[in-house]
């Protein structure tokens, strides 16, 4: 347990505010955070190791970068599904897929990962990158439980998330302060990623601890057993 006794800051902005915020952000998103997040997202995709023929879900597809990579990885015999709460992000991702000529191999849905609108035991893999830390603390086990529900037995969950340091560093404290001060804008915050995945009933297969903006980050690979 960490020195702050496992405390994870709450997310106080509403889902409607999150949706409105990401609808607006969708136009600029590729210019701002994605530049920093890209290499970690790509490392997460590599650990997930998607194979040809698989059915894969991405939660929080944003502007669609990972959807492209996943679609190429599953090939023509597989299929990619994406869910995001923001219709602005849907439009950006759709454009990106159409430009790449891949839109016919990807199915997008607008929805909330707290209540995934998909059948149980279907997906071979679920990928969630820089999204789990946007959910309020009590929602995190619900989202991970939904991931577990829609994965088949033996299916893999790949998570890339800002993670709490032990003890928290200066940048993390500053970020947490910004999160409390401007909850609508600094809406994500560090969480206990690997521990949450394990507590949701996944078998941890791999955990990599990295750093972004001088703050800890985890890439977690879990398996539904």
């Amino acid at each position: 347990m960490s020195q702050d006794n496992g405390f994870v800051s709450r997310v106080t902005r509403s889902k409607a505010e999150a949706k409105a915020s990401y609808d607006k952000l969708s136009r600029w998103y590729d210019l701002l955070p994605d530049h920093s997040e890209r290499k970690h997202r790509e490392a997460g995709l590599e650990k997930l190791g998607v194979r040809p023929g698989e059915n894969v879900l991405e939660i929080g597809f944003g502007t669609g970068h990972a959807l492209l990579a996943l679609t190429r990885a599953v090939g023509e015999s597989g299929r990619v599904y994406g869910i995001d709460i923001s219709e602005g992000m849907r439009d950006r991702a759709k454009s990106r897929l159409e430009e790449a000529g891949l839109s016919q191999r990807v199915d997008l849905t607008c929805g909330d990962a707290n209540e995934l609108p998909y059948d149980a035991d279907f997906f071979d893999a679920v990928f969630i990158s820089f999204t789990l830390e946007l959910f309020d603390t009590p929602e995190i086990p619900v989202v991970l439980g939904e991931c577990r529900r829609v994965l088949r037995n033996g299916g893999r969950l790949g998570v890339v998330a800002m993670t709490k340091g032990e003890p928290p560093g200066v940048m993390e404290r500053l970020y947490e302060w910004a999160h409390r001060r401007w909850p609508k804008y600094a809406d994500c915050r560090p969480i206990y990623a690997s521990r949450s995945v394990e507590e949701a009933g996944f078998q941890l297969r791999e955990v990599a601890r990295l750093s972004m903006w001088c703050m800890p980050l985890e890439i977690v690979l879990g398996e539904k057993v």
Binding site: K15, I83, E87, R90, C110, G111, D112
Partner: peptide
């Protein structure tokens, strides 16, 4: 369903 994308949000 908007732009061929189902909007599966209860609210």
């Amino acid at each position: 369903v908007e732009k061929d994308v189902p909007i599966m949000l209860i609210d």
